[in-house]
Simulated scan of single mutants.
Amino acid sequence: MRVTEKGQVTIPKHIRDRLKIGPGSEVDFVATGDGVRLVKGNADSGEIKDFDAWAASVEGRVDLGGMSTDKFMEWIRGVRDDLHDR
């Protein structure tokens, strides 16, 4: 597959058919460690296909509602009966 002077590529028909990609479909190219992946998308879905992008989008958004770290850990893990005085 060749890239045109405008930076365009043609997605092979068997791939378009398999992913149900047609005129007006949204697609994205996602960089991977050894190349790139074509991902079918939906511009209106708000779906994030890249974990790093998702992690960056939620960074710093935890609201504990004033809960202390100890209370939060207890809430996450559950009460540990074996740690309380006997």
Rank of each mutant, 00 (worst) to 15 (best):
Q8M: 10
Q8V: 08
V9Q: 01
T10R: 08
T10M: 07
I11H: 09
P12N: 05
K13Y: 10
K13M: 14
H14C: 14
I15E: 12
R16Y: 00
R16Q: 03
D17V: 12
R18K: 11
R18W: 13
L19E: 15
L19S: 09
K20P: 02
K20L: 06
I21R: 02
I21Q: 02
P23Y: 14
G24A: 12
G24R: 15
G24Y: 14
E26A: 11
V27C: 05
V27L: 02
V27I: 07
D28W: 15
D28G: 14
D28K: 12
F29A: 07
F29D: 04
V30G: 08
V30P: 05
V30R: 15
G33H: 06
G33N: 08
D34W: 03
G35W: 00
G35A: 03
V36I: 15
R37D: 13
R37A: 11
R37F: 10
R37I: 11
L38E: 00
L38K: 00
V39K: 04
V39P: 01
V39N: 03
G41S: 05
G41M: 01
G41V: 01
G41F: 02
N42T: 00
A43G: 05
A43N: 03
D44Y: 09
D44C: 06
D44A: 15
S45R: 03
S45P: 02
S45A: 07
E47W: 04
I48K: 07
I48E: 07
I48M: 08
K49Y: 15
D50V: 09
D50C: 09
F51I: 14
F51H: 12
D52F: 11
A53C: 08
A53P: 04
A55D: 10
A55L: 11
A55T: 09
A55K: 14
A56E: 13
A56F: 08
A56W: 07
